[in-house]
């Protein structure tokens, strides 16, 4: 059934969300998102936790001078910047290749712009699937 919630505007609510949600294209999009963001979150949180834990409990290791006055603590801290930039860049690339096309295809299939209303018949817009 269609939904008309208090939060929603109601203007484009003639789409059956349950039907989309159960479809294979949506499942693929969800899987593509989760397969990247969940592991990536674990990785950066563990990497950050390791840094904080070493700052608290491995002071001798962090104090080792690598060159000049530059010690492990400083390099480890800077590596958090590098890893943050790297993960952000990897995600941007991944999303552009693997998420945006899938979301775009679903939008094209189910969200018919108003001026397009006569182009295909049913409100579900099931042209291919």
């Amino acid at each position: 059934m269609t939904t008309s919630s208090e939060t929603a505007s109601g203007e484009r609510e003639n789409v059956d969300s349950l039907q989309i949600q159960r479809g294979p294209e949506f499942a693929a999009l969800r899987r593509a998102l989760r397969v990247f963001v969940f592991p990536a979150t674990v990785v950066f949180l563990v990497w950050y936790a390791l840094y904080v834990a070493l700052s608290a409990y491995a002071r001798d290791f962090m104090a080792v001078k690598v060159f000049g006055e530059i010690n492990v603590a400083l390099l480890f801290g800077l590596s958090q910047f590098v890893s943050t930039f790297l993960i952000a860049w990897l995600y941007a690339r991944y999303a552009a290749r693997n998420l945006d096309p899938k979301a775009e295809a679903l939008r094209r299939e189910y969200e018919r712009p108003a001026d397009d209303a006569t182009a295909d018949g049913g409100p579900e817009g099931t042209v291919q699937a």
């Binding site: 789409v15 969300s17 989309i20 999009l29 979301a103 969200e111």
Partner: peptide, 12 residues
């Protein structure tokens, strides 16, 4: 379903 579809695809 409505939230999940909307949040992932932008539909609606």
């Amino acid at each position: 379903a409505e939230l999940e579809v909307r949040s992932l695809t932008g539909i609606g």
